[in-house]
Design a protein around this nucleic acid. Structure first.
Length: 263
DNA sequence: AATGACCCCAACCGCAACCCC
DNA sequence: CGGGGTTGCGGTTGGGGTCAT
């Protein structure tokens, strides 16, 4: 591919991986685990740069990869998460066990974009494509109010997880506290489809954790209230490692709210 | 059967974030 | 606290496969 090499190292292979290279990488990681990607190629006897090894493992060789076609359910999850998170493929992948960010990104660009366009929805903004609706004020403007929910303490126990609380906006006004509300410019009149689609009528409370434990870096745990159980169940991955309570002591918290929703 | 157009996806690159000294 | 090294993310590319003519 017509770009200058990312690695200065001479004698590194590029392009498609051979079966032998795959086998070497798999054997090495099975024996030693995922470690220092930079030193891995040499240790494993591969003429590849560490980046390339990492990508090959994560996107193709990992044993827990699902592969195969995406289901309708997965499609809808991706669409919903994309409407909330944008092109944060790694976060979206974190909600779909067995799928990689690269896979989801490719799938989005090749299938879902088209699917949304055929539904008359702009895949980037998730707004209707027709000019009248497009002229309407931004519907789902993300209002992110980042603040510390607890005072910063020592560097211990910072939560890396991203918690998204999905609440029924009309019923839960208790946890908003003094959170800054989104200024509302979108009404159900301007977005009738949002009024009819329960998944749109969401007030999403987003808690962003601070990085500390790399093993939880990509985790994104959903806390749900009882009212929103079905959607919560839909979005929550089947298997997710529990997050030690200690790591949850502190977080950044924000609110994602659909404008016009009652909080 | 040949060929060009289109599509899919593995792999690349640049850069930002993170880590460690 | 700053700087260098490493890792991870998102955008992009291009080779190979498939479809249409």
């Amino acid at each position: 591919m017509g770009r200058s090499p990312c690695c200065e190292k001479a004698h590194t292979n590029k392009g498609a991986w051979t079966k032998e290279e795959d086998q070497r990488l798999i054997s090495y990681i099975r024996a030693h685990g995922e470690g220092c990607w930079r030193s891995l190629p040499k240790a494993a006897g591969l003429l590849r740069c560490g980046k390339s090894c990492r990508l090959r493992w994560i996107n193709y060789l990992r044993p827990d990869l699902k592969r195969g076609n995406f289901t309708e359910e997965e499609d809808e999850i991706i669409i919903k998460l994309h409407s909330l998170l944008g092109n944060k493929w790694s976060l979206i992948a974190g909600r779909l066990p067995g799928r990689t960010d690269n896979e989801i990104k490719n799938y989005w660009n090749t299938h879902i974009k088209r699917k949304l366009i055929s539904r008359g929805i702009d895949p980037q903004t998730h707004r209707p494509l027709n000019p009248a609706a497009a002229a309407a004020p931004l519907p789902a403007k993300t209002c992110l109010d980042l603040r510390r929910s607890t005072p910063p303490q020592a560097t211990t126990s910072m939560n890396e997880a991203t918690n998204i609380n999905i609440r029924s906006p009309a019923r839960d006004n208790s946890s908003s506290g003094d959170n800054t509300k989104c200024s509302s410019t979108t009404t159900e009149e301007s977005r009738p489809e949002m009024a009819n689609d329960p998944s749109f009528a969401l007030d999403l409370e987003l808690s962003l954790g601070l990085p500390s434990l790399s093993k939880y870096k990509k985790s994104c745990s959903f806390n749900s209230s009882v009212e929103s159980k079905p959607l919560f169940d839909l979005l929550r991955p089947a298997a997710e490692p529990p997050i030690p309570e200690a790591t949850q002591a502190m977080c950044l918290r924000g609110q994602l709210g659909f404008q016009g929703s009652v909080v």
